[in-house]
Design a protein around this nucleic acid. Structure first.
Lengths: 239, 239
DNA sequence: TTTGCGGCTTGACGGAGGTCAAATATTAGT
DNA sequence: ACTAATATTTGACCTCCGTCAAGCCGCAAA
């Protein structure tokens, strides 16, 4: 593991307050590898041998139904549950609990990934209080991300879920009074999967949102009024 | 807070290894209250003033869309995201991060609940390593519960989600070769909401599962073969 | 420019599941 | 047991969304 990778890794909140000795041991035990798009980090059901830390690029966590890598068969559906990028850690729950992965992970954008041995991580939990605290805070944030998604999935329509996604993107930018422009960072297929709909239905949802002042041109999106979008997400009878 | 309540509370893994002094302080700062069905513990958007620990009974976490307690209007839909029972803690993420609740909580079965002040909990995180560790483990388990639900929600049909629920129930019992009998602990309306479907559709899903050897009589369910149910959940083209 | 390819959109169609209303089963009260 | 109130099921209907099949656009190689 080279200097730059170590520096990036240990600057993360999760590791920031560990003593140097612990960091060195971690760096020795682990390694960093660059993975191309489509590379599979692990499959559902495997045991968690490493904690993966993303230094750059992006990785999707996805669940699948049917055969997957098995009999080479095709009738295999999958759905993206979460997308992780630089600074994110996957998947702490499986590593901490030493349980098999519930989902699989695949690189969606060339990623530089640190592989830290699972038992070393469990040792850190045991020996360093601050690591445990940071892990808890991180897990708490991740729980909220899933909770939010689950809520949307259970009670909002496809266009509403898209609208919610746009709102979170817009919150990242500084509001300019009314209108906001945001840029999508995912291709349609990936976004559709993450939002829990087919790509075709995402297209229709995009068309639908024109009625509430949202216009798409490629990956650029102009939102006439975030407040209007927000109201749209609260509507019960979907038009 | 009486002796029995304290004993039950401090027997939980989360508190088990705390020094007596810390426990006493916690017991002094908090209180226990019994809440009837329908009682609302908190609403989405409120700040987390307490960590709630369920000593008995059950509580649902639900998201809502539309007005809720507002203008007394009716067009208000809600969906249960998680159900907690004795020994569970709600909602650690909001308390630890000191952020507003993402969802609301309502008692679904008369519950005895300990209210522990949020800042006392955050103090424990800071001062007691073991508490932080236990919190992290708990959050990891909770993350997996939501991840599993989200996966099911995104890629399985309503009857398949019901089947998955039955499988988890069946896993709690000792397998008797093939057939297993389980008992539902939720009324249809609540179960339907948790599974992300309408009560009517739950009824139809129940009827549907007769085809794979599952028979319902009131709250009693007989499963001819868990393996058969499992296979049913993997099917892509539903039916 | 042409060809080809992949990503995205559009149209047509069907099915899963939501909604409303009525029927039936359960429970509670008297 | 009888009635009222509530919970669950069933039926009819309709809509959202998934699927399949073209069509379209942009981009890269030739």
């Amino acid at each position: 593991m080279n200097q730059a990778d170590q520096a990036a890794l240990f600057a993360l909140p999760l590791f920031a307050h560990l003593p140097v000795a612990a960091l060195e041991r971690l760096a020795d035990g682990g390694f960093v590898h660059s993975e191309p798009p489509e590379a599979v980090l692990f499959l559902e059901g495997e045991s968690a041998r490493f904690l993966h830390v993303i230094l750059s690029g992006r990785v999707s966590l996805f669940g699948s139904i049917g055969d997957i890598a098995a009999s080479g068969g095709l009738p295999h559906r999958e759905a993206i549950v979460e997308i992780f990028s630089a600074g994110d850690v996957i998947i702490a729950p499986a590593v901490l609990l030493d349980l098999p992965y519930l989902m699989s992970a695949r690189v969606i954008e060339t990623a530089r990934i640190a592989f830290l041995p699972a038992d070393a991580i469990r040792d850190l939990m045991r020996e360093h209080a601050d690591f445990a605290r940071q892990a808890a805070m991180m897990l708490a944030r991740h729980w909220r991300l899933l909770a939010r998604q689950l809520k949307d999935q259970k009670l909002r329509s496809a266009p509403q879920r898209l609208a919610r996604y746009l709102i979170t993107l817009a919150n990242g930018t500084q509001g300019e009074g009314q209108g906001v422009d945001v840029e999508l960072t995912l291709d349609r297929r990936t976004l559709a999967s993450w939002l829990g709909m087919s790509p075709e239905n995402l297209s229709r949802s995009i068309a639908q949102l024109a009625e509430v002042g949202v216009h798409f041109r490629g990956r650029k999106v102009s939102i006439a009024s975030v407040a209007r979008l927000h109201a749209y997400c609260q509507e019960d009878d979907l038009r």
